[in-house]
Design a protein around this nucleic acid. Structure first.
Lengths: 135, 135
DNA sequence: CGTTTAATGTTATTACATTACATCATGCAT
DNA sequence: ATGCATGATGTAATGTAATAACATTAAACG
């Protein structure tokens, strides 16, 4: 029943670009790809990204200064998610893990720390790239 | 017997500033504090930071674009560490947790992903700030 | 010594992100 | 309908983070 406001034109454009991309894009990458759609300034992209991220349908990768469309449907309720980022092909695989979540919770609780957001990002080499060195 | 090369002048200056700071500093914050010591350009700081981070005696906080001195002695061997970052006082509390580590390992292993580095950063409110709202 | 190598210094540039302010569109109360 | 409030957009300028390219200096060592 989460009847939420529909996305605006710019937000749809940005989300579309992210969904089509196999790997994370920086705000300026996105802007570049939307020049032909009339977007001209970084702020137009950053504004759209903010909404998408707040909605939970896009994630920001802190270690990359880049953004990806959420891969799961129900990211919002699933709690925190993590990413495995391949240094060779550039792809970012999103994952959810209940136990990891719980462990992070308990670590916070031990310190009486109230976490509002948690970033988990591993960088390395993905299975694909391990097999076929170049991509 | 890890007889390692001694730190250079700039590296010592940067590390000193980080150790004295109660919270993470950006490279430009550091530069600002070292103007009086003769440092003039960002690169001087970034170069020193790179060495310190590679040595494992300083950490980069991806979600803050900032740096902190390592709080433990033996960070290098302890494996990956995480941070709890308070949005009010700005302090970053470092932590190690074996089980968290293991869990991250196993998640990677499941996907046949070979992680070289993992970022874990929670932001929220620390125990201190919860008690005494302003700091 | 002179040569190699690592560290530094300096300038310029690129990449990432936000502030400030003007404009436009929409909804809706009178 | 008219006028006002609100939210979305557009645009320019600026601020902040990071690196490239190249010149210079210092230390190591045959």
């Amino acid at each position: 029943m989460t009847s939420t406001k529909p996305l605006t034109a710019n937000q749809q454009l940005v989300l579309g670009v992210l969904k089509r991309s196999p790997s994370p894009l920086s705000a300026y990458d996105i802007l570049h790809r939307l020049r032909n759609k009339g977007l001209k300034a970084p702020l137009q992209v950053y504004r759209a990204l903010k909404v998408l991220v707040d909605l939970g349908i896009t994630h920001r990768l802190e270690s990359l200064n880049a953004f990806v469309a959420c891969s799961g449907e129900n990211c919002r309720q699933a709690g925190m998610s993590g990413f495995m980022i391949c240094n060779l092909c550039g792809r970012a695989q999103e994952f959810y893990n209940r136990q990891l979540n719980d462990k992070l919770q308990s670590i916070s609780a031990d310190q009486e720390f109230v976490a509002s957001h948690t970033v988990v990002e591993s960088s390395g080499i993905c299975a694909q790239c391990k097999k076929t060195p170049v991509n």
